[in-house]
Structures are given as structure tokens and as C-alpha cells.
Amino acid sequence: MSLLALRDVKIAYDREIVHGVSFTLEPGAVVGIVGESGSGKTLTCRAALGILPEHFRISGGSIELDGHDVASLTPKQWTALRGSTISAVFQDPASYLNPSLTIGSQVAEVVRVKLGLGRRAARLRAVELLASVRLPAAVYKQYPHELSGGMLQRSLIAAAIAAQPKVLIADEATTALDVTVQAEILDLLAELRESTGLALVVVSHDLAVVAQFCDEVLVMRDGTVVEQGPVEKILYQPEHEYTRLLIEEHESYGLERYLVTS
């Protein structure tokens, strides 16, 4: 059974903004969504997380999360599912952390609330989680402003996987980071997938980021999925003009022009 299944999901404000998104995510699989800001990729993710902004609603289609039709979920049921079944990390890690609390105490808080552990046990688990995202132990006692963007994002990934979710959505999670740091975070996500069987939805404006480890790719523009398919097909036989533009950008202006392929 799929962990996450979107069937022709439409999202509306006063008018329809996302015009039908469908994909299914199997355990341990990776689906990529590529598109500019305003393409509807973030709204789609937020719908799957049950956190659409105010006045936005799912106006058509259905979302099934780990066997639950999300339309029938009460806010309380949603809260129980978030973190333990589906979780997410976003672009600007600093804005999701309290600047006046240590990183460790914030991760431990998530553990305490989500897993119902006592303070001491939560602290130990938080230390383990920070180690699992390759942060040095000293980070536990540090404050957000003392850490680099990459370390903050690692901290948030630690918090996101604290309750062992089955699905992690990474929405432009590496966009604000330096490219060398981005590579480290992408490697970490791939590692977590290997070691825990976590299924991923990777969202980016850069086709090359998404294509790195996705099985299936959705290309979105102006609220519409303009092309969707296995990553090989998207890269080698793109059909839509916009997908071709994304590839052309890399081929003409990126490293690809010079790379010697063996």
C-alpha cells in the first residue's frame, strides 16, 4: 500500500490555483517536484501535510496518507499524524527554531511531546538524533545563532525524524545553502532513506537537485503538472517545452558543457 497517494488534487483560494496533482509514494521511494516559486509545489506539499495557509482549501481530488483519507481527519488526528507519519523541512531553517532556546532542548521537546518520553530519556534520544544527522555533540548546548545554515538544517532534520515518520517532505530544504553544504544535506537525506527506509518528497526549483535521487519527477508550472514520469524519461525524452528549458539551462550554461563523459 502507498504511504502517500495524491489523486487529482486541486487547491483553491478564491479561484483554483493548483489544477490537479497526482502521485503515489511507496515506502522507501523518492518523488521529486520541480518548479519555480508560484508553481504550486509548496501548496501541494502543504496540502499533504494538512497545513495549507488560511483560506486555502483542497477543492478537488483526494489525499490518502498511510491509509487515511485526509479529508476525514480531525485536527487532533492530524496533529497525531504529523511528525510520526509525515514530516517536513523547509527552506529557511532559522525561522523554525526559537532563537532563545538551545538546539538540544528544542529537539528534546519534540521527542518528549511526540514520543511521550520523560525529560531524561528525551534528552538522551535528542543526543542520538543529533548524532544521526552528523552534528557534533556540542551542538546540543548551542543556540541557533551560533550555527551555520547547514547545521541549522541538520538540526531541523533531526527534529523532523524524531518520531520516526514514514514520509519526509524536503521543500527547497537546500536552496538557501552553499552548494557544498547542499550536497552534504542531500547526502544525509539519501543516507537516512537507506538506513531507515524513509520515503522522500524532494521539492526544488533545480531539476538537477530533484533528479539526483528521485525515481519519479513531476514538473510543475503555474499550478499545473506539465510533465510527469520516471526520472530517466524526464531527462532523456522531455516532452514539454518547459522541461526542455530546464534541461537547456543546464546544458548551455552549467558545468554540463564542459563535463567529459566517459
Binding site: V179, A211, E232, G254, E256, L259
Partner: peptide, 22 residues
């Protein structure tokens, strides 16, 4: 390190590290 880190379509599929044919 920098060159290794830049995402490219050629090496997009990390499962085939030798790169994909042009």
C-alpha cells in the same frame, strides 16, 4: 569538493556514478 557538489544533469543519477550518456 565544489565541483563534486554542483548538481548536474550528467551526474544527476548518483546510482550510476560514471554519469549518464549525453
Amino acid at each position: 569538493k565544489l565541483i563534486r557538489s554542483v548538481p548536474t544533469l550528467r551526474r544527476a543519477d548518483r546510482r550510476t556514478p560514471e554519469g549518464i550518456p549525453a
